[in-house]
Design a protein around this nucleic acid. Structure first.
Length: 258
DNA sequence: AGCATTGTTTCACA
DNA sequence: TTGTGAAACAATGC
């Protein structure tokens, strides 16, 4: 699920429910999700501290820790979710899942926990994560930045939207959604876009992000359920078209999106 | 059995 | 330089 809206929701959960709780133990033994680190390294850095602040840029989130501790970076990958439980063990999606899909766990001294629950196991946990390759956050980017970064070069528009170095936070579903909302073909060349089209696209992007956060994720977008064979554009009724653009399966309305 | 998947990284190549 | 496509990563679901 995780694109920018899901990550923002996860950040808000951490912000409201996990800060200020003393860390008693950490399970960082998943050598894939916690790789470059050796088992125990993240644990040593966190035990005795508290999560103090939360941050997000694009799909990357991270926490500051107390006593000048390291930053704790968390990436949800393709299927990661954050579960936070209270001292009674309540909340945190306990019912949702197989415990073996908890890939990283912080246990608080009060008995609750923060877990990275990740079925597909492509998430990541890092100390002091490197964020230098990320472009400006898709929810915060200014009109001028957007026009400059998106409207340059000869890439297909969708490929550019998915480029986390150009703009951070847009994934495959959100890209299809905002392109449909904007009436723009994913195959349009970026240098071919007029300023008005870029401004319009950015407007739809911000609207779609807000809506997705409010409604529970990018899968609630209007076009998402129509990304299937034999489905039709909910506005004009044309049959949806499918192709690979920017390396990802892409669905769009060939009549309205030009 | 085979293919697809909301993400990232790397690499060969044009 | 820019951009593309494929593969690898891991694991599940249809």
């Amino acid at each position: 699920m995780p694109e920018l809206p899901e990550v923002e929701s996860a950040r808000q959960v951490v912000e409201s429910r996990a800060l200020g709780r003393l860390i008693a133990d950490v399970d960082d033994s998943d050598t894939y999700e916690c790789r470059p680190h050796v088992p125990g390294e993240i644990r040593s850095a966190l035990v005795g501290r508290e999560l103090a602040t939360t941050h997000r840029r694009g799909k990357a989130m991270w926490c500051g820790t107390s006593d000048d501790g390291p930053l704790l970076g968390i990436h949800l990958g393709m299927s990661g979710r954050i579960h936070v439980s209270d001292s009674e063990g309540r909340g945190g999606g306990r019912a949702a899942g197989k415990p073996e899909w908890d890939r990283f766990t912080i246990t608080f001294e009060d008995g609750g926990s923060l877990r990275l629950f990740d079925k597909r196991r492509l998430g990541r946990v890092r100390l002091d994560p490197d964020l230098t390759a990320l472009g400006p956050d898709a929810a915060e980017i200014t009109g001028e930045e957007f026009r400059t970064r998106i409207g340059k070069g000869n890439a297909p528009l969708k490929a550019r939207l998915l480029d986390q170095g150009a703009i951070a936070g847009i994934g495959n579903l959100l890209a299809d959604e905002v392109l449909w909302q904007s009436g723009l073909s994913p195959q349009r060349r970026t240098h071919d876009l007029a300023s008005e089209e870029l401004d319009d696209l950015r407007g739809h992007l911000h609207t779609a992000i807000r809506a997705a956060i409010q409604h529970g994720g990018v899968h609630t977008g209007e076009i998402i359920k129509h990304r299937r064979r034999d489905e039709h554009c909910p506005r004009c009724g044309a049959e949806m078209m499918r192709a690979t653009v920017g390396g990802r399966t892409t669905w769009w309305c060939p009549v309205e999106q030009t």
